[in-house]
Each structure stands twice: as C-alpha cells, then as structure tokens.
C-alpha cells in the first residue's frame, strides 16, 4: 500500500476481523444490543463512534506527555464526554428525530468500553497518526458488526432496509408475503441481537481456527 506502511495498515485491518472489538475482545456489547433494531440507527451510531474514537485517540495521543498520570483516567473521560456532547448537539440540530430514537445511547458512548480501552491501551503510548489509525480501525470493527446485526434485525424483524420495504408489503401481501412469509417480531427485541452477535462469533471462529481458545 502506498499511503500506509504495512504496520500502519495492520492497525486498521486487524480490528476489522481478527481482533474485532465486539466479537473477539467482547467490548461495546451493550450498545450493539440496544440500537441495532434498525439499520439506520446502527449506521448513525457507528459514525458517531467513529468520530469520537478518531478524534479522541488523536487528542489523547497529542497530550499524552503532559497528562498528569494521577488523573489520566479523568482526563480521558473529559475528552470523551466533551466529544460525545458535541456529537449529541450536532445530531439534535441536524437529525432531530434520529437523536430522539438514539436518545440515551449517544450519551452512553462515553461508557463504551472500546473507547476508554483504546485510549488507555494505545493512544497513551503511541503517536497521533498511529493512534488515529487505531481509533478508526477499532471504530470500523465496531461498525461492521453493528451494521451486520442491524441489517439482519431490520430485514427479518420489519421486512425493511433503511425503511424501504424490500420484501414487499406485509399488509397488501405482496412480494414474499404473498407466499405466506411473516415478519419475525422477536428479531426486534434485544435478546436477538445477542444471538446474532453469537452467530457472527461462531462463523468467524469456525473459519479461523486460530481464534479458538482452549
């Protein structure tokens, strides 16, 4: 790759699959369960986390040498909290109905373990560019799972994707509904997100035996 050295590229590609924050490190599960009933909410949540992770990792990395070690966790929290409030305000201003839907979960990005985890484990010890790549990589790894789960839950639960009726109309019985297909309301409930994440973990580990722990 011309733009990125091999090592840098690994920072982005690793969290996408073999070191995925959700399926391998099992971080950030709570938001993955809560907001994935619709694809749109998953995408917005992913973008919000992408922004917070990318910028947050750079900020922490830039000030890593001047952060007093006694209060470093508080400093990290302040940085995340400030970024999350900015995201929240921007959503309220430009995507109001969506921000109501995501409601508390935007605020809960602060508690998303992926973010604090990457600050502590990576940004505190590496330069801004590497930290930026690490942040983006981990946020993308989170996003991939969110979008996959959101895709299946919306498709099977509501028969729509991003609000479009891709499977036909359940009331007028067109498309697949004409042959007796029904939406599975269970898909819309949080437990199904856990099961979908479980299936992803299963598929991933059966394809890559190295990931299986004894």
């Amino acid at each position: 790759m011309g733009l990125l050295s091999k090592k840098d590229a690994k920072l982005i590609t690793d969290p996408l699959a073999d070191n995925n924050p959700i399926t391998i490190q099992v971080l950030g599960i709570c938001s993955a369960l809560a907001i994935t009933a619709q694809l749109k909410a998953s995408i917005v949540m992913s973008l919000s986390v992408l922004f917070v992770m990318g910028v947050g990792n750079v900020v922490i990395s830039l000030i890593r040498n001047i952060i007093p070690s006694k209060i470093r966790i508080i400093v990290q929290l302040t940085v995340v909290a400030a970024l999350v409030i900015i995201v929240d305000q921007v959503l309220k201003a430009y995507a109001y109905s969506l921000s109501k839907e995501l409601s508390v979960f935007i605020g809960l990005i602060i508690t998303n373990c992926i973010i604090m985890g990457r600050f502590e484990a990576f940004a505190l010890g590496n330069g801004p560019w590497k930290s930026f790549l690490d942040g983006i990589g981990n946020a993308l790894g989170y996003a991939v799972i969110l979008v996959i789960v959101g895709f299946f839950r919306e498709l099977l639960g509501s028969g729509t994707l991003l609000g479009f009726k891709v499977l036909g109309d359940p009331i007028e019985k067109t498309g697949v509904y004409a042959i007796g297909y029904e939406n599975n309301g269970f898909m819309l409930l949080s437990p199904m997100a856990l099961i979908v994440v479980g299936i992803i973990i299963w598929v991933q580990r059966s394809r890559n035996k190295d990931l299986i722990e004894d």
Partner: peptide, 12 residues
C-alpha cells in the same frame, strides 16, 4: 514534572 500536585491541579 507531571507527577507534582501543583502541576496536576493546574492541568485540571
């Protein structure tokens, strides 16, 4: 330098 109390308070 970054361990002193004065610095910590000023930073905060």
């Amino acid at each position: 330098k970054t361990d002193s109390n004065v610095y910590t308070v000023l930073f905060a």
